[in-house]
Every structure is written in C-alpha cells, then in structure tokens.
C-alpha cells in the first residue's frame, strides 16, 4: 500500500486540481453549451431544442449594439494601445536617466481595479463639473465635452479609460522586447552609419514579431472580457449604448432572468476568445516541445 502510494503520489497530489479543472472549467463549459440549446428562461431546462437561443440572440437589437461596440472598442483599444505602447517603449529606450521612475508612472494604472479606473474617469468626464467645466473656465466658453452622456460617443470614453489603464503594460512588454534584441546587430548597423530610425524600422521592430502577437492576444482578451470598466464608467448607458457582450450576458443572467440568452451570449464570447487564443497557445506549446 505505501509502495503504491509512493509511486503514485505525484498523481495523487495533482488529482484535486485536475478534477477541479475538469469539472469547473470544462464541465461548466459543457453545461453552458447545453443550456444554450434549450428553452431555459428563469430556470434551466435540459431538453435540447436546437439553436433557438442563438436565433433570438442574433435578432436582438441590444446584442447587435453589444457586438458592434465590441468591434469598435476592441479595434481602437488594441490598435491605439499597441501604437502608444511601442512609441513609449522606443522613447524610453534612449538611455533616459529617469527611466525607472517614468516606467513606474506609466505602469501603475495596471495595478488598479477597473472599477477604480471607471470611477476616476467618470468624474473627470463629468459634463457639468469635470474637464468640460475646467476648459470652459480657461476661457473657452463654447467648449463642450459630453461624450459620457452622448449615446454616439459614450463608447469612446470606455476606449479612452481602457487605453489609460493598459497602454503602460504594452509599453513594458515592448521595452522588454527591445532590450532582448541582439545588441551586436544594432551596433554593427550604427557603425555602418545607418540612421537610428532605420535601425528600428528595419531591424529591431521586425525582430519583435512574437511580442506584437503576445500584446495583441493579451489586449484582445482584455477587450472581450471587459465588464467592470463599462459598469463603473457608463453602466452600459446611456440606454444600451455602451453595452458589450459581457454586460449583455450579465444582464440576462442576473437581472432579466433569461438563462438561455445568458448562456448563448457566453458561448459566443467564448467562441471569439478561442478563435484568437487557441491557435496562439497551440503554437506556443508546440514550440516548447520541439
């Protein structure tokens, strides 16, 4: 008995986590997938009825708004964070004396809760008392900045706050990448009289392709899961103007009592995440095993 235990101890130690992951991750995904195919409303039902929930979902104007918002938000958030992050990383890579302090300042938002970020920006963007009033106070009487309450513009306030929170992190990723580029090649290029900006565009940036991919994956993942920031900044409003799939799912699950819609929207979210993440993880794991 003790010999058996000795031999199988590693498996015994792993077993609880293994079971937990199987049940609470994969089992739960199957449960949600199953329920998304039923007529569940306030309580789950288990008779499969086909894709009725997905039909309802795709016909719902509110879901349409949420997906559109995800597209706008995701594209702008990812693109601007990457450009800004890369730019700041390159600027910081020029032997800046106070680099440590500046890096700390750029990155601290990442330590904050999205709820805190949302609260702060909600106040800054407050149309009556925030930035608008300040700029008006400087003498620009006609200046208006009421994106927060404008249904067509509110989604951009979420982009703004999300970039503020995450771009420093992208900067840190790129900075680590810049530091890992072979300095011999750079020095050789400089000896040959190649201007610095050419060294960056032709040698350094292309060699950082894997970091671009990592940053993209992390940002895309953050974008799809965005929930807290919307809740704190706009509450999904005005109306449903800033709904994202995550807030739609939450509303269906916990305030509308529509489990079928909640499950089907969650499955769509997972589909989006997996089409982005699975190929990446697969290639990472393969690269490690080779």
């Amino acid at each position: 008995m003790s010999k058996w235990l000795e031999e199988h101890l590693p498996k015994v130690v792993l077993a609880p986590s293994f079971i937990a992951v199987l049940v609470f991750v994969y089992g739960f995904i199957i449960w949600t997938a199953w329920v998304s195919l039923t007529r569940s409303k306030l309580l789950p039902k288990y008779d499969i009825e086909g894709f009725i929930q997905y039909d309802r979902l795709f016909a719902a104007p509110r879901w349409d708004v949420a997906m559109n918002n995800l597209f706008i938000f995701g594209t702008l958030f990812i693109a601007i964070s990457m450009v800004l992050g890369l730019m700041l990383a390159i600027l910081l890579d020029q032997n800046i004396r106070t680099e440590g302090a500046i890096r700390t300042i750029y990155l601290y938002p990442m330590a904050l809760s999205m709820i805190v970020t949302g609260t702060a920006w909600k106040w800054i963007l407050n149309p009556g008392l925030g930035l608008e009033a300040t700029v008006q106070g400087w003498g620009f009487e006609t200046f208006t900045f009421n994106w927060l309450v404008d249904p067509d513009k509110a989604i951009y306030t979420i982009v703004l706050a999300a970039i503020w929170q995450s771009s420093g992190f992208v900067m840190a990723l790129f900075l680590a990448g810049l530091r890992s580029v072979d300095t011999e090649i750079i020095r050789a290029a400089q000896v040959d009289g190649i201007p610095t900006w050419r060294v960056y565009t032709a040698i350094i940036i292309p060699s950082m392709a894997p970091i671009f991919l990592s940053a993209f994956i992390v940002l895309a993942h953050l974008a799809i899961k965005s929930f807290d920031l919307v809740i704190a900044l706009t509450g999904g409003g005005p109306g449903f103007a800033t709904d994202l799939p995550a807030t739609y799912m939450y509303a269906m699950a916990f305030s509308r009592g529509d489990i079928g819609q909640a499950a089907s929207s969650a499955m769509i979210m997972m589909g989006v995440v997996f089409t982005i993440v699975v190929p990446y993880l697969y290639s990472e794991l393969r690269a490690k095993n080779d």
Binding site: G27, K225, M269
Partner: peptide, 10 residues
Amino acid sequence: FIPFQVVLLP
C-alpha cells in the same frame, strides 16, 4: 483564457 461568463451560471 476562458471568459468567466461561461462559468457564471453553473
């Protein structure tokens, strides 16, 4: 990497 929405209900 799963979005946690997919496990909230169960």
